[in-house]
Nucleic acid binder design. Structure first.
Length: 289
DNA sequence: CGTCCCACCTGATTGC
DNA sequence: TGCAATCAGGTGGGAC
């Protein structure tokens, strides 16, 4: 379920429900590849911690927590070697949740049965549970001591000049560049195709060869599409739901994604499907040049 | 280093 | 109905 608008919707929903609560216990599934930090480190970092807020960086959900001083000592003792930097740390930490393709982060009453493929449960001081559920197990959980910023630029706030600069000299296709999280973070297959359509640019065009005008259109289209999708709670393509179990509505606004062979809503030409950057890509051969 | 490609998983849908 | 093939919102590591 996971591009920037969906991740932001989930993060905001979880934030509204759990901000200020304390984590009293942590359970993890033991499926090794789900955990980027060792499971015991995740459990020990979060147990007893207060949730300060939940937000989004790129496609990653970030839960800021404050640990008690007693607990902080325990966790730091596990990390060797210790540095002076660690000793000066505030005792705050972050729980990072990447949803992969099928991950969900849910806040549930304890009597609601655990869904199949649940990989982590944080029990809160009011008995409710934050649950991470992920059938395909492409999602990842970790904890970090420092504030996580992510590798790429933030698409919702980047200025047009800086945006254009990201693609200078790049030989890869513009669609592949949009998907590359170390260039720009948060954009995935849906919003790459939708923004390229709205900007009138073919997905296979070399990123470094786009004109300044085209990059200006792409910057504007991408920001509009992301803002509109966030407003509608994201796109529910199959089973994506927010923290309340409610589907998004941006899928009703899709012009190309998932519409292979259907007619372009502007010129009525059949939409074409190609593979770019290893991903299915749909575009209008007439409207996109 | 930049770019490309495939493996990593389960489940839903399609096609024979 | 049954079973195999195909496809899916994403990455990360290895090859070139």
């Amino acid at each position: 379920m996971p591009e920037l608008p969906e991740v932001e919707t989930v993060a905001n929903g979880v934030d509204a429900r759990v901000r200020g609560r304390r984590v009293v216990s942590v359970w993890t599934s033991g499926k090794p590849q789900t955990f980027k930090s060792p499971e015991n480190v995740i459990a020990e970092t979060l147990t007893g911690a207060r949730i300060l807020r939940v937000h989004r960086v790129g496609k990653t959900i970030v839960m800021d927590v404050a640990r008690s001083s007693h607990h902080k000592k325990q966790v730091l003792r596990l990390r060797a070697p210790r540095s002076a930097q660690d000793d000066k740390s505030t005792g705050d930490a972050q729980f990072l949740i990447h949803l992969g393709m099928t991950g969900r982060l849910l806040v549930s009453q304890p009597e609601v049965p655990l869904p199949k493929h649940t990989h982590a449960v944080l029990t809160l001081d009011d008995k409710r549970e934050v649950r991470f559920v992920d059938p395909r197990r492409f999602g990842r959980l970790s904890v970090a001591a420092e504030s996580y910023l992510g590798p790429g630029a933030e698409p919702t706030t980047i200025l047009a000049e800086e945006f254009a600069e990201l693609f200078r000299g790049r030989k890869l296709a513009i669609k592949a560049a949009l998907l590359n999280q170390s260039i720009l973070h948060g954009v995935g297959n849906i919003y790459a195709d939708e923004s390229l359509y709205r900007a009138g640019i073919r997905p296979r065009r070399q990123a470094g060869r786009l004109t300044r005008a085209e990059l200006g259109r792409l910057h504007a289209a991408l920001q509009q599409v992301l803002a509109h999708a966030i407003q509608l709670g994201g796109s529910s393509v199959s089973d994506y739901v927010d923290a309340d179990g409610i589907r998004g509505f941006f899928q009703l606004e899709h012009m190309v994604y998932g519409r292979t062979g259907e007619l372009c809503k502007v010129c009525e030409t059949p939409l074409k499907k190609i593979i770019v950057g290893g991903r299915t890509t749909v575009y209008c051969p007439v409207c996109q040049r």
